[in-house]
Write a protein that binds this DNA or RNA. Sequence first.
DNA 1: GCAAGATAGTTTGATATCAAATTATTTGGC
DNA 2: GCCAAATAATTTGATATCAAACTATCTTGC
Lengths: 166, 166
Amino acid sequence: MVAESSMDRNMLATPADGGMSVPALFQNLIGYHLRVAQETSFQGFAKAAGKEDLKPGWYALLTVLAERESMTPSELSRTCGRDRSTLTSSLKALSNRGLIERRWNPDDQRSYSVRLTEEGRQMQERLHAIAVVHELRLDEIAGEDKAVLIAVLGRIAATFGTSEDF
Amino acid sequence: MVAESSMDRNMLATPADGGMSVPALFQNLIGYHLRVAQETSFQGFAKAAGKEDLKPGWYALLTVLAERESMTPSELSRTCGRDRSTLTSSLKALSNRGLIERRWNPDDQRSYSVRLTEEGRQMQERLHAIAVVHELRLDEIAGEDKAVLIAVLGRIAATFGTSEDF
DNA sequence: GCAAGATAGTTTGATATCAAATTATTTGGC
DNA sequence: GCCAAATAATTTGATATCAAACTATCTTGC
């Protein structure tokens, strides 16, 4: 699983404007801090990349394709954690922008494969460079706690992500 | 800022079905683990609460109202981090379900205040109890690292949430 | 006191998401 | 071989979100 899928229903929100601070009830809740950190961190990334180039799942799709060379929409759907139907419009947009190329599968008329164009590869590299810069900032913030942080986050994902969800 | 607002554009997705594991490129990225942990954790909460009772911002709205007694839609918007226009339908739904009550402000014909009904209070308590159970699981997972985890998440939120976003 | 501007809430428009229904093609059972 | 079932992708339907336009009311400046 790799990328930018969405969670429409969130438990807790980020500090929005200059409004209230964290309500007492939420002060000590991991879930709350997880949500706020994730949301603000992503906003930082999105802002750096620019809205035009960071449409919903683009970074994820391009990065997966950069690793795998060629995939079908169904494979991309599974890997990126988004519904197949959602990919239809994303792939159309990426294709219109010349970032990907579609090739019909001669062995299966229903299916086609998707691969990056040279332009798509450049876009992926550009977005990835921004992600790396962003990650460096996170590394700096985490400091010596990085390993612990990743370990705990991994345990959380493993607990809720595997046993009970699907 | 309190609740269930949404981040439509996410950087990274959760492990979806039984699909791929974490791609090498993302293995060491805090942003990725943050995303996956947040998403899977929220799914665990949503599943426990049930879809009927956990419409997008309900837990947040009800909890804020439980603390504040009475608020206007605009205040709720700021506190919950959702656009005012988005609240219109949520408040209508909560009102239809008998969970909140609206009272026109005699001093300002444009405005009204919202408060929990007794039924709304019960629903808030039910959802909160589920959130607490969920939080206990997170506490267990975090173990002795909880304090560090919350501290780092707080630093991330503070870094990206205040200085550059708004 | 009245016109200009601010503010409260709603409506509309553009996206995005998932889930279910649909269409076309391939596979499998017999 | 042929018809049923599975599969690939798309289309459609129901929600949700934000942003901008809109309506109604209140506040200000003069």
